[in-house]
Every structure is written in C-alpha cells, then in structure tokens.
C-alpha cells in the first residue's frame, strides 16, 4: 500500500509537470485565409469593417494646442464576415501632411503595422461631408470612396513576417448617423508580396 501511495505521488507530480509544459493553454480560433493571387504577383486579402457594428471606440486627443490625434478602433472581419481580429488607426498631422498608421492584429495569425502619408489633411468624415452627406442623412446609392494614399507595411509579426503589404482603404458609405459617425463598410484591401 505504501508503494502504491509512492507510485501515485510520482505519477501525479510528473503528470502535472508534463501537463504544465505540453498543454496548449491558449489556442486562438483560426479561420482559413481568404486570399487570391493578383495578376502582377502577390496575394490579395480583403479585411472588412462593418459600421457601426464593428466600431469599438474613436478618440480625438487634442491635449496639445492645435494638434489633434485621432484614434479609431475596430473589430476586423474576413471577407466571409467572421470577426478574426482587431484594428487600430492613428491619424495625426506632422509637417503639414496627414500621417496615418494602421495596426491589424489577428491573434491566430500575426500583426501588420502600416503607415501612409498624404498631403491631403481631410478626414474621411470631411470627404463624405464634401460629397453632400450630412449628419443624420442616408443614401440609397452607397458612396464608394478610395483614400488616395495607400499604406505600406513597416513591421510584421507571426505568419505575416517577411511579407511586405500595401493597404488601400475603400469606404462604402450608406449614411452618417446623428453623431457624425459613418455608416457603411470599410474595406481594407491588402496585397502582400514576399520581401526581397
């Protein structure tokens, strides 16, 4: 009986330690990558943000005088509508140009950090307003707006490592709510090419 107690002790001790090492403590749900090959090489993958459903929070930080930093946070979907990750966008003006930075994070795959610089200081809200859509209004025919300056990846992690990405923002706007927030779909079209 004493031998059995000792045997059980050793088995329990070793089993617990082996489990601590080999247990997959955190496995993130992985959806298949919905990619296609583009004509001139590279891999196209579209990420989608449905607005307002996927808007987490937007912040305008104007603690430093004239300068305002806009922070936007979204849930990120694949082309089939599955929520696969999180996205953040920072916009600020530096030396009279609009600097936009994107962070696309997909827990099961990795992260892409991208940056774009544009001489056009207009926000998407002001572009939409200039197209005649004011707060509280909707349109039957959605407005499709491509932001002119694509963003390019600066850093990547996980399975995105060693891939260079270009990102084009396409806003498909169906309306603006009473608070001035856009309703519609934000399509983030990425083209990835192997780093040279």
């Amino acid at each position: 009986m004493k031998r059995l107690l000792q045997l059980g002790f050793v088995l329990g001790l070793v089993g617990t330690i082996v489990a601590a090492y080999f247990t997959p403590w955190f496995e993130h749900t992985r959806y298949r990558s919905l990619t296609s090959v583009v004509n001139n090489g590279g891999r196209l993958e579209q990420f989608v943000v449905q607005l307002p459903a996927d808007r987490i929070e937007s912040v305008a930080d104007s603690r430093t005088g004239d300068s305002t930093t806009r922070l936007s946070h979204f849930k990120l979907r694949d082309a089939e509508g599955n929520v696969i990750g999180l996205a953040a966008k920072h916009e600020l003006t530096v030396d009279s140009s609009m600097e936009s930075s994107w962070l696309l994070t997909i827990p099961s795959r990795g992260t892409i950090a991208l940056a774009a610089s544009s001489p056009n200081l207009d926000s998407i809200e002001s572009i939409v307003a200039a197209r005649g859509l004011a707060a509280g209004q909707s349109v039957d025919q959605a407005l499709s707006i491509d932001l002119p300056s694509p963003a390019n990846s600066v850093a990547t992690t996980g399975e995105f490592s060693d891939i260079e990405f270009e990102l084009v923002e396409t806003w498909v706007v169906t309306g603006v709510d009473d608070d001035g927030n856009i309703r519609g779909t934000l399509r983030l079209n990425t083209i990835g090419r192997q780093s040279t």
Partner: peptide, 11 residues
Amino acid sequence: LAGLMLGALAG
C-alpha cells in the same frame, strides 16, 4: 488516488 492527489498538489 491519494498518492496521485498529493503528487498533483506538489506539482
């Protein structure tokens, strides 16, 4: 069983 539980607690 008692041995297993003691071992697991020690682990």
